[in-house]
């Protein structure tokens, strides 16, 4: 680890703090526990129908312990982005803009994992990688693309206040569009393969429910850890951009005063910089 000689204080050269370090280790342990429960403790999904044939997802159900929590927390992330954007437009504090941005990025990651694990799960269980008739699948894909667009917009250099404000508007329009997309896809094909909410299923095995609950808890911790660190990265990148600007201004001022000598020193910055432009 590189030691920074400029900071002899206790402030670290990274985005960690004692609390997030503990949170990080607990999350890692939780993920390990989730893998153990998903693969070895929870049973396979199978049941006997009235005529004696055995049906079910068998071991493919183990993919759902990562698919369902990441789907739920993708939607949580985008909701926080929407909420943060509304509060940003109202209060105009940088804090909420960073929360919205950080949460959207985590949401895109979770949403991507949801889509990938869903595609992989669909192949053995539905016998297809992709099912156009499934409302949640198509809605989630469009949600993913809308927030990929949001992140692309945020990645383009722009005047900071305008960027934060326009990004907030994009996030709110994008979030509002979700129910419209959902309704339209549902009317479009009017059939859904998707599993009914497993929590409401009375026949669910105890260990299955327990494993799913562990999944939700671990993903909540993971989301929190990612959000705190991503927020701090957003904070730092704004600070670094401002520090870089101040440094560039200072260099330019020094350049101006050294090239035009004593006659310019003491005059305003505007005059100093225009004298540089006149010389070049």
């Amino acid at each position: 680890m590189a030691e920074n000689t400029n900071s002899p204080t206790s402030i670290p050269d990274n985005t960690s703090s004692p609390t997030t370090r503990i949170l990080g280790w607990v999350t890692l342990a939780g993920l390990a526990l989730l893998v153990i429960f998903a693969f070895f403790v929870s049973p396979e999904d199978s049941r006997q129908t009235a005529d004696g044939t055995i049906i079910g997802q068998f071991d493919a159900v183990r993919l759902l312990y990562i698919h369902v929590p990441s789907a739920v927390f993708a939607y949580v992330s985008f909701s926080i982005t929407g909420l943060g954007s509304i509060i940003y437009l109202w209060r105009r504090t940088r804090w909420w803009d960073h929360v919205a941005h950080a949460s959207a990025e985590i949401g895109v990651i979770f949403c991507g994992i949801t889509l990938l694990t869903g595609i992989i799960w669909g192949r053995p269980v539905w016998n297809t990688w992709w099912e156009w008739g499934d409302v949640r699948l198509v809605t989630t894909l469009l949600l993913f693309l809308i927030f990929v667009g949001y992140l692309a917009f945020r990645a383009v250099p722009n005047e900071p206040h305008r960027q934060a404000r326009n990004a907030s508007i994009l996030a709110i329009v994008g979030a509002l569009n979700i129910p419209v997309v959902n309704r339209s896809v549902e009317w479009w094909e009017n059939r859904t393969l998707h599993q009914r909410s497993t929590l409401a299923d009375l026949k669910i095995e105890d260990e299955t429910l327990l494993t799913l609950m562990i999944g939700f808890a671990v993903f909540a911790l993971l989301f929190l850890w990612l959000l705190v660190h991503r927020f701090r990265v957003a904070w730092l990148s704004k600070e670094a951009a401002e520090a870089g600007l101040e440094q560039a201004l200072a260099e330019r001022r020094a350049e101006a005063s050294s090239s035009s000598g004593a006659e310019v020193s003491g005059s305003s910055r505007a005059e100093a910089s225009s004298s540089v432009e006149a010389r070049s």
């Binding site: 590189a2 920074n4 670290p12 050269d13 990274n14 985005t15 960690s16 993920l31 893998v35 998903a38 693969f39 071991d59 493919a60 183990r62 993919l63 990562i66 698919h67 990441s70 990651i109 991507g112 994992i113 990938l116 694990t117 992989i120 799960w121 192949r123 053995p124 993971l222 850890w225 990612l226 660190h229 991503r230 701090r232 990265v233 730092l236 990148s237 600070e239 670094a240 520090a243 870089g244």
Partner: peptide, 30 residues
């Protein structure tokens, strides 16, 4: 399918977490 799904999922999460930590370290020094 199980190995593919879980390794892609955990791999993406790990890579993303690592990238955040690295970005944080780089920016901290500035």
């Amino acid at each position: 399918y199980l190995v593919a799904g879980w390794s892609i999922g955990l791999g993406v999460l790990g890579a993303y977490a690592l990238s955040i930590l690295i970005r944080g370290r780089k920016l901290s020094s500035q």
